[in-house]
């Protein structure tokens, strides 16, 4: 076996093990569920707006380190952004915080980002 290879960026693993903003909002303005049919992962993203600003965000679901880690990271990234700024976020912005395997497994890592785009496209 190789000596201590880094499987995932340690921050991502930390987010997976201690996810931020995990849970449900009682009265969300938007709630979108995205699923990856190849592996069964599922993430629901819920957003509450104050005017055009994202005032509250939570997610729940099940999945791998990348899909759950990304969801946790993403909720932190978008908290307090206005809708236009959130819509401009790209996959590369997210990957910057996640390291290389995220790129290899784009389907996993982009689950919550896709939910975000779908949710806000209805704004």
């Amino acid at each position: 076996m190789k000596d201590k290879p880094e499987i995932y960026n340690q921050d991502v693993v930390h987010h997976y093990q201690n996810p931020h903003n995990k849970g449900k909002l009682s009265d969300p303005d938007f709630s979108v569920t995205e699923e990856n049919p190849k592996c069964g992962d599922r993430v629901t993203l819920q957003i509450k707006l104050d005017g055009a600003e994202i005032s509250e965000v939570k997610f729940h679901g099940h999945g791998c380190v990348l899909s759950i880690g990304a969801a946790s990271i993403l909720t932190q990234m978008i908290q307090g952004l206005n809708v236009r700024e959130a819509l401009e976020l790209t996959f590369d912005d997210l990957v910057e915080n996640m390291g290389n395997p995220a790129k290899m497994r784009k389907d996993c890592a982009s689950l919550s980002l896709n939910a975000l785009k779908k949710a806000l496209s209805g704004w």
Binding site: M1, K2, P5, I7, C39, D41, G63, C64, V65, R105
Partner: peptide, 21 residues
């Protein structure tokens, strides 16, 4: 998660397995 296991086996010892549905 099986996906993470597959990634881990690949990174740890170049072991290729399948994960998913």
């Amino acid at each position: 998660h099986p996906h993470d296991l597959a990634t881990a086996l690949d990174s740890l010892d170049n072991i290729a397995i399948r994960a998913g549905l």
